[in-house]
Amino acid sequence: MNAFVRAAETRSFTKAGAQLGVSSSAVGKAVARLEGRLGVRLFHRSTRTITLTAEGTLFLERCRRIFSEIETAEIELSQTRDAPRGKLKVSLPLVGMLMMPTLSAFMRTWPDIELDLDFSDRLVDVIDEGYDAVVRTGDTTDSRLMMRVLGSFGFKLVGSASYFSAHGTPKTLSDLVTHRCLRHRYPTSGLEDWLHDGHGNKITFQMTTAVTSSAIEPLIQLAKDGHGIACLPDFAVQEQLDDGSLVSVMEHAVRHSSTYRILWPSSRQLAPKISVFVDFMAANLFKPRPISADSQPDQADIGAVGRETAR
């Protein structure tokens, strides 16, 4: 049944085998034995893909309920232990590398939890890809998930002092048109919009693009090296603003903001490892002071989380 569920969720015997640590042929034989015992075909097979039959779709839902009951029983037993433990699979945006101080502090606080971190701006399917939690911006639309806000952040137009000395410091939109722009590109929504009016509407203008990047860290470095102006999350460049390697300009013109949320699969019983991770990230990710290794999450908060739809 486990081989069948993994194959159904990944649409691949090979991927299911990789998750289970066995060969694709072993998964195929396990599914064939299950089909023989049930007397029905669970998959349509071709040389490239497998898809569920109507009977397979029905059986998948039953199997998920069975495994959910098993997981609930295991969670109830695990809660009798002194501390949460086990592997925690988390998806974070590429800018998540800037969250490493918080993640490092979490590892010191909960050493029995093994983090499996995937950094990507790809829109992952939390349920089908087996993630315990994901951190993302944007609205939420999947009712299978629970959600909690981690915090909001603004944006700043930044460049090096040497760049502004050579090219002038922009003070108005017309000044900005002549500058070299270092732009962040999202995988789903495209290039980051820099300027917005007070009503949330973007202000379009002709940019001279020097470089585009799917990650923020290269843009920070290029801005420090004097290659142009970048519009970046304020928390991502705070260290550089503090040490003077970057300078913020036209702060009155950058009015938009975004919010990080943490999402996890909805269930009647929340695993302790997910509970402490959600609490810790909410308490520490946007904390203005340095994170202590002794910081403890607020376990009571998780019970107050309301159900929302989630993307």
Rank of each mutant, 00 (worst) to 15 (best):
A293D: 14
S257D: 06
N284I: 03
K287V: 04
Q269P: 06
K273H: 13
I302S: 12
D243K: 05
R268I: 11
Q296V: 09
E251K: 06
M281T: 05
P290L: 06
V305K: 06
K287L: 09
Q299E: 15
S258G: 11
S275H: 15
V254E: 02
D294G: 06
P290K: 04
D298K: 02
Q299G: 10
A253H: 12
S266A: 15
H252M: 05
D243M: 07
K287S: 08
S258W: 05
V276T: 13
G303H: 13
F280C: 06
G244K: 10
D243C: 06
R261D: 07
H252A: 13
W264I: 00
D279M: 00
V249Q: 04
P272A: 09
R268M: 12
R255P: 05
W264N: 02
L285C: 02
V249W: 02
A293I: 07
F286I: 10
S248V: 06
A300K: 10
V276P: 10
T259F: 07
S267A: 15
M250N: 11
S248E: 12
A304W: 15
V276Q: 11
S267T: 14
Q296M: 11
V254Q: 00
A271R: 01
D301N: 11
F280T: 02
G303K: 04
L246R: 02
P288H: 05
R255T: 13
Q269N: 15
A293H: 13
L270T: 08
H252F: 05
P297I: 00
P290D: 06
S266N: 14
S248G: 09
W264Q: 03
E251C: 07
P272N: 04
R268N: 15
V276F: 04
P288W: 01
S295Q: 14
V305Q: 09
K287F: 03
P265E: 09
F280E: 10
V247P: 00
R289A: 15
K273F: 08
D279H: 00
L285E: 01
A293Y: 13
S258M: 11
V247E: 11
S266F: 14
K287E: 10
I274T: 12
S258I: 10
A271Q: 00
Q269T: 15
S258A: 15
S267E: 15
V254K: 01
M250S: 08
P265I: 08
A271W: 01
I274P: 00
F280A: 04
Y260S: 03
Q299W: 12
N284D: 13
L285D: 03
A304D: 15
V249S: 10
P272K: 00
Y260M: 09
L246E: 08
R261W: 14
P272G: 04
M281A: 08
V247A: 11
W264R: 00
P272M: 05
V305P: 05
V278T: 04
R261C: 14
F277E: 05
T259H: 04
D298Q: 04
P297L: 02
P272F: 03
A283G: 08
I274R: 00
S267W: 03
I262T: 07
Q269I: 15
I262H: 02
M281E: 08
I262Q: 01
R261M: 14
N284H: 12
